[in-house]
């Protein structure tokens, strides 16, 4: 790890101003950033420690939603009683990720901004457009078992690895930002980017912009939801494919509303309105879910080693929808898929 300067931001204003300088990075829990510093993937000149800024709480919003402070830890968020009862999907997704120790350190803002786990991104000797613009992409034609099947480009096939982010996408969360030019709010749908020709840009944050909170609008997925994460190892591993589902059923058992997002398959949590339209008004059957899965996966292409993700994702979507419809969400401690 190269040495760097260090400043503890005393105020948000100070943070966004100083953070706008090139080669300065925000330090939150450090579980991703410190790792990347050690591999010399990131070599900032200075870290700006934002841990003492006042984004440490979960607050009620007037519309029955919740505001998750950017510096609240993943663990505190997942175990918060309000989150557990009103947004169990989010709680479950967070608990599916990393380990207890890491969740105790990881913050909500850091989770949203964590970088890909593409092995070539981590290997400074390999070509990688995300790490070193213009150097090429070693993952294309290389080992890409964990990488993307949707929304890829010729310059990058990386995935956004967060579990929490997939649930936030389903919940239509909004990311609150504070930058040198003031505050703005970006819906989750528009927060992360596809790699396109600029794979080094993971998201649409502007220089110096700080995530201050994540707003959860009121949701009605307390009953019919699931976070199904499929991975090689039963814990402490990133998703090969994950599916977040939130549903509302009417008294007759028809799907009033369904939202489905995928993790581990693209550069951002993947959602497709056409897939959800297929589900609306239908009875929850495997056929309907399969049709929705086909919409969700429209245009998916394998990269060789990860071809299996097409079949796996389809099966996982159907299964997750069934779990949600039946009101038997995936447990993150009993690993049996229900």
């Amino acid at each position: 790890m190269r040495n760097f300067g260090y400043l503890r931001a005393a105020s948000a204003a100070e943070a966004v101003q100083a953070g706008a300088a090139p080669q300065v990075q925000f330090l939150a829990g450090g579980t991703n950033l410190v790792d990347l510093l050690k591999y010399r993937v990131e070599q900032p000149a200075a870290l700006l420690d934002i841990n003492r800024l006042p984004y440490q709480h979960i607050e009620e919003l007037p519309d029955q939603g919740l505001r998750l402070g950017a510096l609240v830890t993943n663990a505190a968020t997942a175990y918060d009683a309000r989150v557990q009862t009103r947004y169990p999907l989010l709680s479950s997704a967070i608990l599916a990720g990393a380990s207890a120790q890491l969740r105790n350190a990881a913050t909500n803002g850091g989770n949203l901004n964590q970088r890909t786990r593409c092995p070539y991104f981590y290997d400074v000797a390999a070509a990688c457009n995300k790490r070193q613009p213009g150097s090429g992409c070693a993952a294309i034609g290389g080992h890409n078992r964990g990488l993307a099947i949707l929304g890829t480009s010729e310059s990058c096939i990386a995935t956004f690895p967060s579990d929490m982010g997939v649930a936030l996408r389903v919940l239509d969360a909004e990311v609150r930002l504070l930058g040198p030019a003031g505050e703005r709010v970006v819906p989750m749908a528009e927060y992360h980017r596809l790699p396109g020709a600029e794979p080094w840009r993971d998201n649409n944050l502007l220089p110096g912009e700080l995530v201050t909170a994540i707003d959860l609008p009121p949701a009605h997925f307390g009953q019919h939801y699931t976070y199904l994460k499929i991975r090689d190892r039963l814990s402490y591993a990133f998703a090969l494919v994950s599916v977040a589902v939130g549903m509302r059923l009417d008294k007759a058992g028809h799907i009033q509303e369904a939202r489905v997002a995928l993790g581990g398959v693209a550069h951002k949590p993947w959602r497709e309105p056409r897939a959800e339209a297929v589900l609306a008004g239908q009875l929850p059957t495997a056929e309907v879910f399969g049709a929705a899965a086909d919409e969700l996966l429209a245009g998916a292409v394998g990269q060789g080693e990860n071809n299996f993700k097409l079949a796996l994702a389809r099966r996982a979507i159907v299964r997750a929808c069934q779990q949600a419809a039946a009101g038997t969400p995936q447990s993150q401690s009993d690993k049996h898929i229900r």
Binding site: I230, R315, A316, R319, K335, H336, I337
Partner: peptide, 8 residues
């Protein structure tokens, strides 16, 4: 698991 073929 018959769908995802997840082995335990």
């Amino acid at each position: 698991d018959p769908d995802t073929l997840h082995v335990q």
